[in-house]
Amino acid sequence: MTPTFAGQLINLLAALLLLIAFAMLSQRRVLSLIYLFAWQGFVLVLSTTLVAYSTGQHHLYYSAALTLILKVFALPWILHRLIIRLNIKWDVETLINIPTTMLLGIVLVIFAFNLALPISQLASTVTKNTLGIAMACVLLAFLMMITRRKAVPQVIGFLAIENGLFFAATSATYGMPMVVEFGVALDVLVGTFIFGIFFFQIRETFDSLDIHHLEKLKED
């Protein structure tokens, strides 16, 4: 595989990542959101493996395996169980309507590309063009967190931010040191557990998972 071909493949995967990010932004159903999240993780695994193969960075294989276990199987499974236990059948309610969100998303992508341009010109890695996409993924996931009313999609948004950061790390610097990656992976796992516990607590207190109710906690 020539470096240019590998580079093009990675660009393709990056584009897929962005596409999935937009799909998540526009998705109304919680269950589909989880599947999309798993798919995003899978694309991430593919791209990481590809970077590892084309550059000969062996530790990236471990990262890819870790991502596969954690983000493609473990986390979606936990979230899936969670929404079944919580019996969330309803559609996702958004604060801003979907088309507006999408337009905002496009603005963010342009912003991210603008931002990444001077940095990626400095970089010498094969994956330098993907930095903008990674940044866009982070911002889009953040936007999703802001515009969702229920707690579960917000957690998914949070996890998607982590995906974007991970992609930025692999694309810009061929991954973080293994220790850091392990740490981050563990944090994400623990974070998800904690969120799960919170969901139950929130529902028990307010009889709903709508975080709108948390406004009552404000001190007047």
Binding site: F142, I146, R149, L214, E219
Partner: peptide, 25 residues
């Protein structure tokens, strides 16, 4: 600033992030 709405709080972080990114640029 303390509206009690998580979305607004998230928006604060988001805007801060954007502003900082612009500064870094």
């Amino acid at each position: 600033l303390q509206s009690g709405r998580i979305h607004i709080y998230l928006l604060y972080s988001f805007v801060t992030l954007l502003v900082l990114l612009i500064f870094v640029r």
